[in-house]
Each structure stands twice: as C-alpha cells, then as structure tokens.
Design a protein around this nucleic acid. Structure first.
Lengths: 238, 238
DNA sequence: ACCTGAACACCGTTCAAGT
DNA sequence: ACCTGAACACCGTTCAAGT
C-alpha cells in the first residue's frame, strides 16, 4: 500500500498533465541558464525569469536567496555538465586533453553565461569532484600529488582562458555561430575593431582573430604544454 | 600673442582652481574604471558615476552613447596601460614571458573589471598595436608570421585564462588582497566551497586553490609552452 | 510551504529646456 | 556644446496577505 501510494505521488504532474511541474531550485537554475543562453546575461531579470517559469518574479525568492545567489547558481548549473575522466588507467596525456576539451566545450555551449565563471567566487562540488578524479588519475600515472595539481592548474587555467576569449569573440547572442566562410568572419572581426584603426591593424586583427582554425589552435597550446612536461621529466620521446 | 593666449587657455581649470576640469570621454572612462575597481561592477550606475564626477547621471550621455558603450570603454581604458615589448632585438622567450606577465598584471590590477575582457566583443586599438609589435619581434627572431601568431595566440589565451581565474578567486571587493599566511587563505577557500561538501573535497580545494605560489604557477605554464616550442622546432636545448 | 499584489528605492534612457 | 529636471518603463527586494 505504502509503495503504491508513493509511486502515484511521484508523478503527480505528469499524471495530471500539469504544464507547471512544481518549482524547484534546480529547475530555477536550469531555466536561468537557458534564459541567459538565449537572451544574454544583461537581459536576465527576476521578473522575466519568473514569467518564463509561469510564475511571478517574487516567487523565485522561495528558491534562491537573491539575484546574486541566482548567478552563483548558474555557475553551479554549468558544472552539472562536467564529466569524469574516461577511465582510471587512461593515458595521462589523453586525460589532460580530455579535461581541457571538456572545459572548453561547456564554455562554448554557454558563451553568454561563461564570464560568470570568472566573476563569481564559488567552487561547486561537481567541479571539485572532477579535479579530484583527475588528480587520482595523474597519480596513478606516476605523478606526485603536488606535481599533479601543478599540471592540472596549468591545463585548467589555459582551457578557461582560451575558451573564454574564444567564446567572447566568436559567439554573439542572436547572430548565429562563428561563420565558416572567411568573408563572413572578416565582417565580424571588422565590427570588433574601432572604425578609426589604421589599415595595418585591421589586417592584423583579420589574421589574428579571423584566419585561424580554433580547434587546431586550442590543441596547439595543450600539445605545447604536454611536450613541455615530457621534456621536463626527461622523457626519451623529447 | 596667439601662442601666449593658447598657453593661458590650456590650463583654465588649474588657473581658476576649478575642481571640475571639464568632462571628457577619456575622463569618464577612467573614472568608470576607478569606480569599478573600488565598488565592483554591479555597483556601477550612470547616476553614481555622474555623482563621482560632480554631475548628473544623464550628463554622461554627452560622452558615451549608452551604458553598454561605457562598459566597452572600460575595456578600452584597461588597454591604455599596456606597454610595448622591451626592445626589438629582445630574446623571443623573454618577450613571451614579458607579454604574459603584463596581461596578467593588468587583470590583477582591475579584478572587478576583468570579466569585461571576455564579455565585450571589442579589440581596442592599443591591444592591436601591442600584438603587432610582438609579431614583428617574433619574426625578427626567425618565426614566420603565421607561426608567430599561433604562438602569440597561445600565450595571450593562457595569460588571460590564468589571470582571470586567479583574479576571481584571490581578489574580493572590499576585503583586501590574497592573504600571505596560509590560515587566512584556507579561510577564504572555505568560503568558496559549498558548506555541504565532503571533507576530502574541502581538503582538495585547500591544496588546489590555497597551497600554491601563484607567481611560480603562472611561470610554469609559460615555461612549459616555451619548452614545447623549443622541442617542436628541434632546438638543441631540449 | 509556496505563491501573489502592492509598494519601495533604484536604474537606464529620453527629451525639452536651460546656459 | 554641454548640462539639468522631469518623466518613463523596468528592476531587485520586502512584506503582509492569500491558499
């Protein structure tokens, strides 16, 4: 009897066909992240987020303490997407590439929210779990704990910086992804450069920002660091 | 006569002892950056910035088109502090270290404004001039233009990422610099970690964020990349 | 326990009016 | 040309009141 009753109670909204499946901190944060993805960080307000959830803006204060807490929550929601390293016996070089690629992927998936990663002073549990898993993986590969953390900090910092700058320059709320054809890219670059900039600087901006395979460029930095680690450790492959 | 007259006209405010030396786009942007440094980005408003400049908030619209333009201007103001590379015949390794160190220094000097660097889609003239100078320096050291840009992108991205994450975690509007003694640092790290995080993750956060010489860690990443470039180029020093 | 209406101080922006 | 007063729609937040 008790089990059956709870089973019924577990899906009251779906059973009733309700369009409003009960507000929850987690649902609020996910909706906030979606809102920022779609409309940009500046457009986010308690009123409008409430409207998106079919509720008055003030109702959100039952689930988040303030707008500041909501912004912290958006960072937390982003970390929910982080995955653990591929396997405990994985090659440490592949693992570092995997970690960097994943940090970058999350940032590129949420370019408008990404600056919050370097604005809010929080370390969500999920991110700590991820670092913890990679520390263990590197230690299994022979790194000391201290060295593992040094190396991980370097990779984490690089991946954040690369993806944040990339997201800022390539993403554009409401104007599509970074264009594949070079002419459209040149157009986008031109918009970023002051109109009174001299010709040779505009050309430089074109080359520096526009004529570059961003995936290859990202991999280059990681490969340089891995090679640096190999050399420092006296690896024969260097 | 004309020269003397203009000399007098050049210092009208100082001569009259006026406390309000005429509003200017440049002065507005500098004041905005100072305001953000002192009070944080969230506290910046047209009204309050006007008050700081002894003027009504609406008056600022004579000098900046909108608050968005003001935020772009803050990024521009930050780049005014960038310096050119040390000398044309400098060692390229030292030059890369110099560039990275300078990007980091600017970000650490303006931690509250720094997220704007990855939020506003602009490439100020001064930053382009800086990149241009470094490209020329690397080419003099034997790099092709393309390779020089690849390497510079890597260093620029790393420096931004490192310094942005560092600034976010170490700086704290109104609560002083990153503490030197380890206990105070542990306290600051604890505030960033969710209260319900398990012990082993709190310990990890302490080690990952707290027990680390940030200058050495920064240099490590650059050194790894330089070593990687050396190895890739088949330099005998590897 | 969760949601709402009304209310508050504050914010970005405009525009006609001043000098 | 630059600055101001008044006005607007919007925003974060509170609180007493509803269910």
């Amino acid at each position: 009897m008790a089990p059956r009753a709870s089973a019924v109670a577990a899906v009251p909204d779906a059973a009733a066909g309700s369009p409003r499946p009960r507000l929850t901190r987690k649902r609020v944060l996910k909706a906030a992240l979606e809102f920022v993805d779609a409309n940009g960080l500046a457009a986010l307000s308690m009123h409008k987020l409430g409207a998106k959830l079919g509720v008055q803006g003030m109702s959100l204060y039952s689930h988040v303490a303030s707008k500041d807490a909501l912004l912290d929550g958006i960072v937390e929601a982003m970390t929910w997407e982080t995955e653990m390293p591929p396997a405990d016996d994985a090659n440490w070089r592949d693992a570092l590439r995997h970690l960097a690629t994943e940090i970058r992927a999350i940032i590129l998936r949420h370019p408008a929210a990404a600056p919050l990663l370097v604005s809010r002073r929080i370390m969500p549990t999920r991110r700590l779990e991820q670092v913890d898993a990679y520390v263990r993986l590197l230690m299994q590969a022979g790194f000391t704990e201290e060295r593992a953390m040094d190396v991980l900090r370097t990779v984490v910092m690089y991946a954040h910086g690369y993806a944040l700058v990339e997201a800022c320059f390539t993403a554009c709320t409401g104007c599509g992804p970074w264009p594949a054809d070079e002419l459209s890219r040149m157009r986008r670059v031109t918009e970023m450069v002051p109109r009174d900039a001299p010709d040779h600087l505009l050309r430089l901006a074109m080359l520096f920002c526009g004529r570059c395979d961003l995936d290859e460029q990202f991999a280059l930095g990681i490969d340089l660091m891995i090679r640096g680690i190999d050399c420092e450790d006296g690896d024969p492959g260097c």
